[in-house]
């Protein structure tokens, strides 16, 4: 290719003598795939998506879920999504911003959802993840606990669990942990 390089060298010098180029931004393959995912989102009415950095940064967004049935009915829970350039090779990073009393979400907002880690596959998309999160509020499960205490209460005493969830969502203490109001 050395001959081509010589040619190109010449062209570059010509270009350098002419006006400068406009700065160019790259769009990664991950960003493009995310563009498709976002443009096809089909969310339930109670779920709201927002883009804190404006319309041109789809890689960081928030969704807010308001469960319409189950233990968490009436609460509002905000999750942050961070999508890497190698999406969908890598899953999005999801954290729960709202402090919640939930067996599968710890007090720091870590979420135990299989498709976010061990069962992630590139054919899954943002829609799947959001529905997975919604399901977590419909069916909290005591088998994959991140909040050990909440899981134990759900397993041994569902009535008490329900009371605890209500108390936490209303803005109160469960044990010695305080939860801000989210109803």
């Amino acid at each position: 290719m050395i001959k081509l390089f010589k040619l190109k060298d010449q062209k570059r010098q010509d270009a350098a003598n002419s006006s400068g180029n406009a700065p160019v931004k790259k769009q990664s393959a991950g960003e493009l795939r995310l563009h498709k995912d976002i443009s096809e989102l089909n969310l339930p009415k109670s779920t709201i998506i927002s883009f804190p950095n404006g319309k041109d940064d789809l890689m960081n967004f928030e969704i807010s879920i308001r469960p319409d049935e189950g233990y968490y009915q009436g609460g509002r829970f905000v999750f942050t999504f961070q999508v890497s350039p190698s999406y969908p090779h890598e899953p999005p990073k999801v954290k729960c911003k709202t402090k919640v009393y939930h067996p599968n979400i710890d007090l720091e907002g870590n979420v135990c959802l299989n498709i976010l880690r061990e069962d992630w596959k590139p054919v899954l998309n943002i829609n799947t993840v959001i529905y997975g999160l919604i399901l977590l509020f419909m069916q909290p499960n005591d088998e994959d606990p991140l909040n050990h205490d909440a899981a134990a209460v759900l397993r041994d005493n569902p009535r008490l669990f329900e009371t605890n969830v209500r108390r936490a969502m209303a803005g109160g203490y469960v044990g010695d942990v305080h939860f801000p109001r989210c109803i």
């Binding site: 160019v24 931004k25 790259k26 769009q27 960003e31 493009l32 563009h35 498709k36 976002i38 443009s39 096809e40 989102l41 089909n42 969310l43 709201i48 998506i49 927002s50 883009f51 319309k55 041109d56 789809l58």
Partner: peptide, 16 residues
């Protein structure tokens, strides 16, 4: 939906 160099020119969805 249309995007060019990281600028989203038009998005059919979500409403926002």
């Amino acid at each position: 939906s249309v995007t060019c160099r990281g600028k989203n020119l038009y998005m059919q969805s979500p409403p926002v």
